[in-house]
Design a protein around this nucleic acid. Sequence first.
DNA 1: GAGAGTACCTCAGGACCCAG
DNA 2: CTGGGTCCTGAGGTACTCTC
Length: 260
Amino acid sequence: MAKELYKKLKLLREQNQFSQKQLADELGISRPTYMQIEKGEREITISEAKKLASIFSLSLESFLTNNISASREVILESGIKSKKQSDIRIVMPRANVKKFKEILLYVLNKVGAKPNIGETALYKLLYFIDFDFYEKFEEQLTGARYIKNHYGPTPIEFKKIIENMEEKKEIERVKSSYFQYEQKKYLPRREPDLKSLSAQEIKHIDEVLARLSDKNANELSDYSHNDIPWKVHKSGEIISYESVFYRDQEHSVRNYEDEL
DNA sequence: GAGAGTACCTCAGGACCCAG
DNA sequence: CTGGGTCCTGAGGTACTCTC
């Protein structure tokens, strides 16, 4: 591994606010072993490079390219300083944040008013939009990172992006009730800018919404909790995009046999 | 040539220390 | 207490040498 690459690895890790332990766990190796990689004392395997690229939302190529400047940018710093919450910084390329926002507005415009689509269901729809896209096209759509929480996959950057969108009056947060539960809902306050999405991406989102947006909370929960990327990770872990390639037939959205 | 013995290398991970 | 850095030991693999 070129010297620049492990420098870059350390830089990426620090920029993304991961500890060595977290990345070592992601790779399934001990922390000292991970450190050897960062110091260039141990070669990195292809599967490890793929995993790291996925964690940092980079293609394998751009991860392996000796370009010191990380392609993720820290943006949307919170205006409220020195609060615990503002410690969670959004680490996503600007273009992807824009895309994430437009996809969110698009989804909310289409299905946000449905009574079953509260915050948790919304998280799950975004998760399937991102992960299904990765399975189909081997490219990241928004590149958002999702963490395994007890009630479902949660996009790490979601909260900060929503706050930013609320400030800009692009979105409105409302509380309603769904059966006996209090439900958090988001209403779009502007139309999505479809220019930032390709026809292929829109078609993909439409397909996911058609397939999943009518499922009730329990059905959606069962469906997502049986998805391999969800199943193979421990609670609190970042769900690796690569794991979509191990999906079972029920969840797979790619016809691998046609490609043989 | 085949099998046994040995040396060397890489890797993993526990244990320890230090700094904040 | 947590995260980062280092040392040390053992396991596993490979290449080389020796003996039959």
